[in-house]
């Protein structure tokens, strides 16, 4: 799951895979703004076939957090 998620982040944010680390954070990286956040959510939902609640969308503030959240939905 983590590699798939890493690839989504790299592709949507248009950054090299090496930049997708646990510390990658919303609002701190130039490429991760509110627009790309929406694209990230859309791609994650589509690729993992899940629907993410608004609370989790707001909470998805770093790549580490994104892994946690996606894992939670995958186990449901």
């Amino acid at each position: 799951m983590n590699e798939k998620l890493r690839n989504i982040f790299a592709s949507v944010l248009d950054i090299p895979l090496e930049e997708v680390t646990d510390e990658l954070a919303y609002g701190q990286h130039d490429k991760w703004d509110s627009m790309s956040h929406m694209m990230l959510i859309a791609d994650i939902e589509s690729n993992f076939d899940i629907m993410i609640d608004t609370d989790d969308i707001i909470d998805m503030s770093s790549f580490a957090k994104a892994q946690e959240i996606v894992a939670k939905y995958e186990s449901e």
């Binding site: 929406m38 694209m39 959510i41 859309a42 791609d43 939902e45 589509s46 608004t54």
Partner: peptide, 10 residues
């Protein structure tokens, strides 16, 4: 709009 735009964004 919130829900449908997420699907449209794909």
């Amino acid at each position: 709009a919130q829900g449908i735009s997420k699907i449209m964004a794909r």
